[in-house]
Amino acid sequence: MAAVAESRSRPRTRPQHVLRGPHARREARVGLLFVAPCFLLFLAFRFGPGIAGLVLGFTDYTIGDSTHFTGLDNFQRMVHDPLFWSSLRVTVVYSVIAVPFTIAASLGLALLTRRAFRGSRLFRSVFFLPVVTSLILASTVFIWIFSTKGPWSSLMGLLGLPEQSWLTDSALVLPALALVGIWSRCGYGMLILLARLQDVPRELEEAALMDGAGPFQRFRHIVAPQLKPAFFFLAVIETTNSFQIFDAIYVMTGGGPANASYSLVYQLYDAGFKYSDLGYASALGCVLFVMTVVVALVQRMVLGREK
């Protein structure tokens, strides 16, 4: 008994799963062998093109022509390109609208479908459906929804707001696109938060209930802290996703009206595939990459300080 008590009180100073010796090394090699195909594919189709893109950003690469190293020319050109600043602003504004609302909508849906009730699985499936629906297809429908004669305009009319197409208004086009983004992404966020919510101990909430805590207090002091890692994950994923917004814009507005929805990835696409200016397109890709990494690091500092 005393030995058991001693072993329980002894602090664990060494990790439990560190294996040593020839057997362990053989096992590690086998593990690496299993990982190797995936790792090689990653190198060939993700890491390799990524590095190539980075290098091309410092050249004047155009298809069928000789390529020259141009140093920082593409980046200097970017600094003086008003379209770059405009597309950067569009990307940031879109993200500022889309990311928090997507997480909020995901949280709302997760809390609604958290408890098992009759039809809860059906609701979860329905809420998840937009994630697996083609955004191109959905965007075609949203063009009609947001048109002057569409239901969204009629709804605005009922609320006493002007009946107009949100896609033709420079101030409203990004909120309209963000709505589409939120619609298409909140099902995924719901799933992540739902999984995390299942791990929140019921006893804690019940104890708080006994102590007279209201629903908001229970959520704020018990549920929300438990969801922090999931919020961090969602913030990174959704920010990355919204920085890369392209398909809905391409189908719904073509970057208009008057470049009011012309995003950074749209500019990258046009530079690369419309104007064959692949060096500049690669430089834009580098900036997008740096932006994504910086924002992810900031999010990690703010949201992910605790493990």
Binding site: T140, I143, W144, S147, T148, S165, L167, T168, V173, M252, T253, G254, G256, P257
Partner: peptide
């Protein structure tokens, strides 16, 4: 049609 200044729906729409 003003909507067509910014969007191009399918011709049948």
């Amino acid at each position: 049609p003003k909507d067509l200044v910014t969007t191009t729906p399918q011709i049948e729409q």
